[in-house]
Write a protein that binds this DNA or RNA. Sequence first.
DNA 1: TCTGGGGTCCTAGGACCC
DNA 2: TCTGGGGTCCTAGGACCC
Length: 383
Amino acid sequence: MTRRIAHLDMDAFYASVELLRYPQLKDLPVVIGGARRTEDETLRKIGEELTLSRIPLKAFPRLADYTGRGVVTTATYAARQFGVGSALGLMKAAKLCPQAILLPVDFNEYRKYSHAFKAIILDIAPLMEDRGIDEVYIDFSHVHGGQREGGRVLARLIQKAIFDATGLTCSVGVAPNKLLAKMASEFNKPNGIAIVYETDVQEGIWPLACRKINGIGPKAEEKLKKYGIETIGQLAAQDLQWLIDHFGQKTGAWLHDAANGRDERPIVLESEPVSVSRETSFERDLHAVRDKAQLTRILTELCEKVSADLQRKGYVGKTIGIKLRYDDFKSVTRDQTLPTYTDNTQTIRRTARLCLRRVSLEQRLRLLGVRVGNLTKAGSPER
DNA sequence: TCTGGGGTCCTAGGACCC
DNA sequence: TCTGGGGTCCTAGGACCC
């Protein structure tokens, strides 16, 4: 039996969930994002499901009216036409598409749909790896229909089941491994399916940019370009030893395998969290001395949230850390490992303050974060 | 008025131990 | 008078992903 791995990616997930609530926004440019909530949340609280769909278009906040920090988290396909996409600063997005409607991020709502679509998949195919709120890997190898037409039949079935239950569409790639499946799910977005076989690598994968490999980001792409390597095929043509010499043992070997479509990583069904953190960017840059009271308040809130997150999830940790971002966007972190595990707000706060004493506070700050790492299950024997 | 927030993994140096 | 090798933990920074 050949290994068939699917990667399933929900289409414009946050935006699509918002359109379920506000169908009147369908086909309009809509942007989800913003560091701060807008008045829209109030609308949502008063309104019931039925009345939400009757909110007139002119009542929705426009991107052009937004002032402040933040980035685009997701944009509808209509907004993407204007060049507005994920990670773009909202002020820049407003220049490209001022008429776009801006909605705040509502994670609770997205989480509900996330659970729903994953439950549907698990019902059909039990070997699923969770890769965040809107995507998963699925092992098709031993599932009924998982081999037919290379996985297309099962992919179609899952797409339909998800759509029927939620009204949401997704794109699926099916391939011999996770690496290729992940690439394939991009091929026919939205609401598409792509099937990749081992024999397709040369023709279908090699012409693509190296950046399409999950794990090659902007930095690695730049470095590769410096050597004249732009496509995956060019990368595959490099000598293994040359790659190791220039990228290190591990990365070099990985690049070589990835470019040749080789990937043996298993589907991981369960995993334990490594750290829990909270961070916030301020509405305006703050000064350690002048804005001390405000910073202290924010630090306390972050510690309370991290502590509550740990307790809710049932974990304790022993490495407490802080993160600062200065007004020039440079970040620093400090952390300290305690002799015992904790989820206690006061302990976290006290340790975070000690960490803060070890950083320079001359420059103005734009962000503060608190992290607890080195986690173990609360009440576990190791504690 | 550029640039969110929550994560994971890797590297690399130093401490410390055997 | 010079100086091992391996292993683990801690810390800081950075790349990358969703």
